[in-house]
Design a protein around this nucleic acid. Structure first.
Lengths: 107, 107
DNA sequence: GTGAGTGTATGGTTTTCATCGAACACTCGG
DNA sequence: CCGAGTGTTCGATGAAAACCATACACTCAC
């Protein structure tokens, strides 16, 4: 009915409610860094969770996305059987100016 | 003779040689964050390692400073029996524009 | 309804990291 | 030369985090 999916909608944290430390920790992981970067290079809602090229299993992937949500970096929405993602660029940028640019610009 | 101290001079890493990930990881620790912030509020070379108000023993403190050096955040110099510190503001800022400001401005 | 595709939850293993206590190295003032 | 002060190194411990395999929940096409 709710056009939603798996069981319950994912709970998001707004960047404004995120401590710097949490944001830094979220970005200080190689796998999550790849997720954020690939996400930055894709249109909003165009990438499902499974569409990323990272060397971890589904379970770990799911956990990483949970961390990214908790850091206010990613928003998720259920679309049919898949969960699609969006990088919260503007909101995150407003809260942590320059941080996202930094991790995206870097080799 | 060398006017130095403990055994060997500490080996520093220039911010230019530091991967983003390393920088983020270094700053994503509560103790190190305190060190960096207190350091930012003090004059260069005015603070010895033991002069910081953090709830850890000497061994852990020493390790944290080692991490900060490795991230290009702190420079150290031996001054008599004590090792004094300096925040590498300009250099680190040049490598990671805005990052330091971010962690310093935050509540 | 069934089966394929997708993501989450759980439990357990492994790795990583912060921490401590104790031993050591160095400097300096007596 | 000693002793106090300062910081590093080592080994061990404990907690946190990443990871996997399995089992489960949901959606959709057929």
């Amino acid at each position: 009915m709710t056009a939603s999916s798996h069981r319950t909608a994912p709970d998001h944290t707004h960047p404004d409610d995120v401590p710097v430390q949490t944001a830094l920790a979220a970005l200080a992981d190689p796998v999550r860094l790849v997720l954020v970067r690939e996400l930055a290079g894709s249109a909003d809602w165009s990438r499902s969770c499974g569409s990323f090229d990272v060397p971890v299993g589904k379970a770990a992937l799911s956990h990483h996305f949970s961390v990214l949500r908790g850091a206010g970096l990613v928003e998720q929405r259920d679309e049919g059987p898949k969960r699609v993602n969006r990088l919260r660029r503007a909101e995150f940028d407003a809260r942590f100016p320059g941080l996202l640019d930094l991790v995206l610009r870097d080799d």
